[in-house]
Every structure is written in C-alpha cells, then in structure tokens.
Design a protein around this nucleic acid. Structure first.
Length: 852
RNA sequence: GCGAGAGUGGCGGAAUUGGUAGACGCGCCAGAUUUAGGAUCUGGUGUCCCGUGGCGUGGGGGUUCGAGUCCCCCCUCUCGCACCA
C-alpha cells in the first residue's frame, strides 16, 4: 500500500483488524453507560440493496459515535429468516427453504461485512434457528395460559395465491401485501393474540414516546382507533332478538328512524321475512361479490335492502325498519348502526334513496332547521329538540345523560370501542415456527407440555405449492399421542405469522445463546430498552405495534422489566432513483443506457420520474458493484451526505463521484503534509493558542458533535468537515505552525471516522498512531480556540444589508453604532434622512432604522 | 374527506432561538498543470438592466426595526387513514 488511495486494500485490511481484535464485541460493563443501537434486521433474500446500505450506514455512524463518546454499545445483527420467499424458491428451484435461507444468509453476511459495519457478530442469529423459535413456542404457551393466545373461528382475509391468512394490516387496497393478489374472505379456525387487551396501554404510552416521530405515533393511535360511545340495545319487534349498536352519538337517538346492519351480521337470517328473502339474498350475494377495495372506497354508491323486520327505538317506542346496508362493516363496532339521517351524512344519503323519514333532533344555535330543508346532514353541535325530556340541553351533555338514562333502564351503557382487532397469527405455511398445540378427539386443543418443546419443523418435506401447507400432509409430524390422555392425536399444522419472530428478536440479542429461557433476565434488563431503533417507515404500524405489544407481554410474564421496546425511533426515507424507459424495450437498467440512448436499439431514452428503487422499474444500483468500484467508504459517505436520514434519498452517480473525490482529497491532505507535521505529541501544547485554522478546527469539532449527537444531521456534519478540508488546502503551509496543521488534519480524520471508518483508520495509523482510532475517543473542542478578537458585522439600513465592518469582538454598542454610521455605503443611504433607531444584535448585525 | 409532512438556484440540499438566504456537494464556466485526455489545484456561478442598484425561499395578505422561519387565507405535491357508526 503506497501513497495512493486504494479503497479495496484499505478496507480489507481494517475489516480484518476489527475481526481479529473483536473490536465491537459487547458485554455487560459497570463503568460505562450502555447504549443499545439497533437497525431493523433484514429478510435474507440473498442480496443486499441500497435501502439496507443506507439503513445500516446510518446506524453504524451512531454506533461508532456512541462508542467514541465512551458508551458501552450493543450493535447486533441477524436475520428475519422465516417467510414465504423461501417456500416460493423451493417451488421454483426445488431447493429446500432451509438450505436456500442459510445460503442466502451466508452470502448476505459477506456483503454486509464488506460495508464495514461495527456489529457484534458473535450475537448473530436467524429466527429460523431452532434455538430461537423454540423460545417463541414457550412464549406462546405462557400466553395461552394467560388467555393471551386463543382460537376462534372467524372470517379471515385469505390470499389464494399464498394459500394463507393475512392480518387486516397485511391487506393493502384489498390485496395481499406480499403478492398483491386479490384477498377474499374465508371462514377458518385460527389462533389469535389478544392484543386488544393491551389496547389502552398501547394507546396511552404513545403520549410518552418522546423519541418517536409524531407521524408514526399518529398512525398507531389511528390504528388503535379508540372511540368513546354508547352501546344500545334495540328489541326486535315480535321476536326475542335484540340488535346491539355502538354509537358515538347517543344524543341523536330520538332522531333514529331506521337501522342498518352489515350484510354479514349474524342476526340477518332470523330477521328476514319470507316476503323479503329473495331480495335480501340477492343483495347479500351482490355485496359479497364486491371486493373489500370497492366496499371501503367511499365513492361506493350507498345501497341497501329492507329485511322485513322492525326494531323498537328504546326511547320513543317507535318501530324502525331494519335494513342491510353495503357500507356497514361487520369489522367495526357491533356491525349494526342506528341510522340518524338528519345528523349523519351516510344515513342522510341512504334515507333519501329509500324515502325514509328524517327527523331533526339538534338545532344549531340561532337557526331553525327542518327536515325538508336539509340539503345535507347537520353534524355540528346545538341544542336538542324533538327529544322528549332531553329537549333544550346541549347535544354534548345529552350524550352522557341519554346514556345513563338507558343504563338505568338496562337498555344500554357507556362503552369504548376500538378499531384494533386481535392479531391473527395462524399461517398455513411450512417455513415458520410450528404452533405448539396438539388436537385430541377427547381432550380438544392441548398445549404441548414445556418438557416436550421444541416442536421441530421437520426437514423432510416436499414443497410443491399445491394443496396448502406441506406440514398438513406430513404424517410423521402430525401424528402424536395426546399429552393429556395418551390417545392418538394430531399436531397443529399451522405456523406463526413471521411478524411474531420480529416482535421480540431485539430482546433476544441481549442473550442470544441463553439456553434456559427465552431471555436471560439480567442481560435483557441491562441492555433493554433499545436506545435507538432505525428502520423504514413502512413498518410504522404492523411491526412496531406488535413489538410494543410483545414487550408488554414479556414484561407481564416476568421476563423483562421494560414496558416499551424502543426509546427512540428514527424512520429513514427511501432510496430513489430516476427511471429510464425505452419505447421498444420498456424500463432500462442504468447500464442499458449510453449517452441517453438505449443500448439495445439506439432509440432515445425517456427519463421518467424519480421513484423508489425497485427491480420492476429497473432503477436500481447494486451495492456490490458500487462498492467494487468506489469502496464501502464512498458508498457509506454518499448515503449519509446526499440527504438527511428521514428524507428520501435521490441516488446520483455524479454525487457518488464527488464523495469519492472528497475522500481522495482527505487522503492527500494527510500524505502531502506528512513531512511537515512533526511529532504527534506537539498537539497537546497548543492549548490556548489561536489562529484562523485552529479556530476552524475547533468550530468543526463542535459542529460535527452537535449535528451527530441526537440530531442525526449527518449531511451537514460531513459538509462542515469538507469546509475544514478546504481550509487546510487553502492555508499557507509555510506560514502555518505544523502543530496547528497537524491538529486540523487529525481532527478531520477523527471526525470522519464514524462515517468512513476504513480510510480513517488507515490515515490515523499513517499519522503515527497504533491500535485503532476508537481508543482515542471523540475529539473535544476548546472554547478558548473559538474566540476571535475581531468580527465582521453586517450593517443594515431599514433591514437591507448596506455594508460590513470589522470590529473588535468585545466592542460595546456605542462603538459599533459609530462604526456602522461611518461606513461609506451606509452614509449614502442614511444621508438626508433621520435615524430613528439603531438595533444592535451582538455578534450578528446592526440595523439602522431611518425615516424620511 | 380526515391526519401528518413538504414546497428554497440548473440539481441534491443548508440556514438549530425571527438577525448577512443559498453553507457543502453536483453540474456548468474560466484559469493553472499536462504532449493530449483523465486526474489534480485555483477562481467564478440565484436572477435582472453595464454597475456600488432592483428583485428573489409555491401564491396572496399580516405582525416586526428585521420573516425561508411567526399568524391568516389559498395552491401544489408526498405519505398515512378512510362509509369508523
């Protein structure tokens, strides 16, 4: 290795050094504050993409910075290794999902190591490791004991393509979040986690998560969807049946003129009169044919059908016709809505369409609404009318009054309702954690006794993609004796949703080899919670909510003290790139374009919009090639420099070049000056000395420290180091003291080391230091070095800049005023006018206010 | 429709508490070096008429000595949620 910057050599050397020295191994230490930094672990698809590079580069800066600051840093990495792509690969190529997954892990580990990330690799695990999922099975058994895991028959979202169930939040626009196939409703027996038991805590804690982006918290609150209201029972006329409704508007009960039920409502069959049956069945069939996308699209025409039954308004005794309506969802509330057309827009439209009565029961202040005159529902506040003894009171007060009146008469009560549903975790898949349950004809569903864990996923399976889960056909796996009565029984063949694994992996990193329980309580309590979690915004609801839920469950099982998994959350933006398209060949990869022409046919290429990098749009950059061309340090530097972490990053090849050039500039700044620098010990003697370069050095140390610590403004931190490098190039090396020059250069190297660790380690060594750059800690700035005797002051006249003067830093206002008023250009603007006021902002500017 | 965020040069972006708008980088222009190209180094680069001047942070109004930043109205874009009873 000579005086030329050859990234490949430098990077290989230091990656080897870090591995040999186990530089990033974490262990419990009493004398340092712990800092747990975690990036969302990847699915082992086989190749890393730029999104990973960005995510992990951001995390690595924080890890290295905290370590330099003297923290005891835990920075682990592993693999979210169960899931469908492994089975799809098995179907396509005949490779066993396990083999495919572990081979992918091996190649991705190599790629990640090539980036030079400071992980404690000794803690690595994959969620498909028996030693991981066995503990998940134990957690499930404990949850089962506490009633937190239960089985129920329900209509589930079913993807025909994946042959599996999807949670509500895994359905996007009515399609499977993974394969984008149409999702249908299917009745199945399924395992659920009772996340709703934690709904209030999950909601309330969002107000304490100060280190989370408001956006994510809002999404979670929205998702939980708590609303206060009233449950009211409506007796069905000539029947013992009662229809329960949930309403947030009990104050409008006197205005209810009909009832709307979801077509899937369980009472529908008993409510339908013989006369109406044909029509109702046709309607139900029509609605069930509509996909969920259409049904929840808002644009949908409101449609319904009369059942032939009536129910009784509990307050007025009136008979209300019961309708089925396409916009009422069985998923929310009770699946039944009391319809108040005067005060609800949907009911209003529905009433008009089917000529149902409209009765105004709330009169806004100073108006007198009549039903005939209404052009839309009146949803505002006012005083009650047409409401018997409640007339005249405000509708807000009436909500509670009417509810308690109903309560007294056993016709209803105040309640809360949540949008959040329990989490369905059964998946009809092979490559996942087996659910440890045995079905016995006489004993029912029996949990696998703890001593019989783990339930191992059998390796000898045939994966064809046909006929559902391979486990359901695997007789050797299925056949088992009932643990309770000993008679022949069958195992549960479903496996867990893979979100279960990612709901507690962060805690397992504290004690990945622990063999007695899911968590070593001491280790877990030392490291948890994660101080900083970093990942994509796309996990704002699902993964982050499930992880919060699991943490609370683990706490209540006595396995951990923490209530929340992630103290601070950073959601990084996507990596985007401009798309390119050829009229003949469609989307083109960057290398298929030369000088704006398609390499296939020579036609001009159309530049499309900038979009998230994706294979389908071919606007991807392969990190492996990038690193091969420029080195890992350049790849990291560009990911960090081009945009602040939370914003989308636009990939730009020329920007990458610029970063590479900058590293070359840093490299030369060291080598070109090595002969001038003198002994390294001299730097300590500089305390108290000032010079322009030294001031710039210490300003930069302060700026970078402040930008990195908590603010994560890596782009501005890097740009300030670029300024320092520019200052080093600009200074007159013959005039500048070698010590000041050395201090400046050393500072550049030390300040850049969290961002581009390899080159900095190398330069640090070439500057005469041994044993790695981290042991020297983070540089500190000296306040005295920031001081200047003279400053430049801006002079404004009426708020416009008219001149600048150099003044003594400690000059008082009257001196400044004098200097300002005598500056030549300022004189021009003040001449002939009256000075009304002079405003001095210390260290910044003087504003002279004139009139006339 | 509701909620959150954003809108600044040719481009990515900076301006942390109301105080010189455009740091830093890319691109572009010029110069130096070089047989040439590349690389490197130096300088310039918001915009408008030649200027020491005018204009300029999506648009319009306001507060202030002073507004990218605060307040009101409007437009556009992105993300999330959505017939939520």
């Amino acid at each position: 290795m000579e005086n030329q910057y050859i990234p490949g050599e430098v990077e290989a050397k230091w990656q080897e050094f870090w591995a040999q020295n186990e530089s990033y191994r974490a262990e419990v230490l009493a004398d340092k504050p712990k800092y747990y930094l975690l990036e969302m672990f990847p699915y082992p698809s086989g190749r890393i993409h730029m999104g990973h590079v960005r995510n992990y580069a951001i995390g690595d800066v924080v890890a290295r910075f905290k370590r330099l600051q003297g923290c005891n840093v835990l920075h682990p990495m592993g693999w979210d290794a169960f899931g469908m792509p492994a089975e799809n690969a098995a179907i396509e190529h005949g490779t066993h999902p396990g083999k495919w997954t572990y081979e992918n892990i091996d190649s991705m580990r190599v790629q990640l190591k090539r980036i030079g990330l400071s992980y404690d690799w000794s803690r690595e695990f994959a969620t498909c490791d028996l030693d991981y999922y066995r503990w998940e099975q134990l957690i499930f058994l404990k949850m089962y004991e506490k009633g937190l895991a239960y089985k129920k028959t329900s209509n589930v979202n079913w993807c025909e393509d994946c042959q599996t169930v999807l949670a509500n939040e895994q359905v996007e626009d009515g399609c499977c979040w993974r394969c984008h196939n149409q999702v249908i409703q299917k009745e199945l027996d399924q395992w659920f986690f009772r996340i709703t038991r934690y709904a209030d805590e999950l909601l309330d804690e969002t107000w304490n998560l100060k280190g989370w982006p408001e956006k994510v918290l809002a999404m979670q609150r929205n998702w939980i969807g708590k609303s206060h209201g009233c449950e009211i029972e409506f007796v069905v006329k000539d029947s013992a049946a009662k229809v329960k409704v949930f309403t947030t508007r009990a104050d409008t009960l006197f205005g209810a003129t009909f009832m709307s039920l979801a077509p899937e409502h369980p009472l529908v069959d008993s409510l339908v009169s013989a006369q109406q049956r044909t029509e109702v069945e046709a309607f139900i069939a029509e609605v069930s044919r509509q996909d969920k996308l259409d049904r929840t699209s808002g644009e949908l025409e409101k449609k319904g059908v009369f059942t032939g039954s009536y129910c009784i308004n509990p307050l007025t005794g009136e008979e209300l016709p019961v309708f089925l309506a396409n916009f009422v969802l069985m998923d929310y509330g009770t699946g039944a809505v009391m319809a108040v057309p005067a005060h609800d827009q949907r009911d209003f439209e529905f009433a008009h369409k089917y000529q149902l009565p409209i009765r105004v029961v709330i009169q806004p202040e100073g108006a007198s609404l009549t039903a005939d005159a209404l052009e839309e529902a009146m949803t505002g506040s006012g005083l009650l009318i047409n409401s018997g003894k409640f007339d005249g009171i405000s509708n807000e007060a009436a909500k509670e009054k009417i509810a308690s009146f109903l309560d007294e008469r056993n016709q209803g009560h105040m309640t809360v309702n949540y949008r959040l549903r329990d989490w369905g975790v059964s998946r009809q898949r092979y490559w996942g954690t087996p659910i440890p349950i045995i079905y016995c004809d006489s004993c029912g569903a029996v949990p696998v006794p703890e001593k019989d864990l783990p339930v191992k996923l059998p390796m000898d399976v045939e994966i064809t993609g046909e006929g559902g889960s391979p486990l359901a056909r695997h007789e050797a796996f299925l056949n088992v004796d009932c643990p309770t009565c000993g008679s022949p029984a069958r195992r549960e063949s479903d496996t867990f949703d893979t979100f279960v694994e990612s709901s507690w992996y962060f805690a397992r990193y504290a004690c990945p080899q622990y063999a007695q329980a899911p968590l070593d309580t001491d280790e877990a309590n030392y490291w948890m919670s994660v101080d900083q979690y970093i990942g994509g915004i796309e996990h704002a609801v699902m993964h982050l909510l499930y992880a919060r839920f699991f943490t609370k469950v683990l706490r209540d099982l006595g396995m951990i003290e923490a209530s929340e998994p992630f103290t601070n959350l950073l959601t990084q933006g996507m990596v985007c790139k401009e798309t390119q398209r050829c009229a003949e060949h469609g989307w083109l990869y960057p290398e298929q374009v030369e000088e704006g022409k398609c390499t296939g046919c020579g036609k001009p290429v159309e530049i499309g919009r900038t979009e998230k990098m994706s294979k389908s749009k071919k606007n991807v950059v392969d990190p492996n090639e990038l690193i091969a061309n420029y080195g890992a340090d350049t790849a990291r530097l560009f990911s960090l420099f081009a945009a602040p972490p939370e914003k989308d990053l636009e990939w730009n090849e020329q920007g990458v070049e610029g970063c590479y050039r900058f590293l070359g500039r840093v490299w030369r700044a060291v080598h070109d000056n090595l002969d001038l620098l003198g002994s390294k010990a001299d730097v300590a003697g500089l305390v108290g000395t000032t010079s322009e370069l030294r001031r710039k050095t210490h300003q930069t140390i302060r700026k970078v420290s402040e930008d990195v610590d908590g603010r994560f403004h890596f782009n501005t931190a890097i740009s300030s180091v670029m300024e320092l490098v520019n200052a080093i190039y600009a200074c007159d090396r013959k005039q500048e003291s070698p010590e000041v020059l050395r201090e400046a250069i050393e500072s550049v190297v030390r300040l850049l080391s969290p961002f581009v660790p390899h080159i900095c380690e190398e330069l640090w060594q070439r500057l005469g230091y041994e044993g790695g750059i981290e042991k020297h800690g983070w540089p500190t700035w000296e306040d005295a070095a920031l001081l200047t005797t003279e400053i430049e002051l801006v002079i404004q006249v009426n708020g416009k800049v008219r001149g600048k003067v150099r003044v003594a830093a400690d000059a008082d206002n009257s001196v400044l005023e004098q200097a300002a008023l005598s500056e030549a250009n300022v004189v021009r603007f003040v001449a002939g006018k009256q000075v009304c006021k002079v405003i001095c902002v210390p260290g910044r500017l003087i504003n002279i206010v004139v009139s006339g």
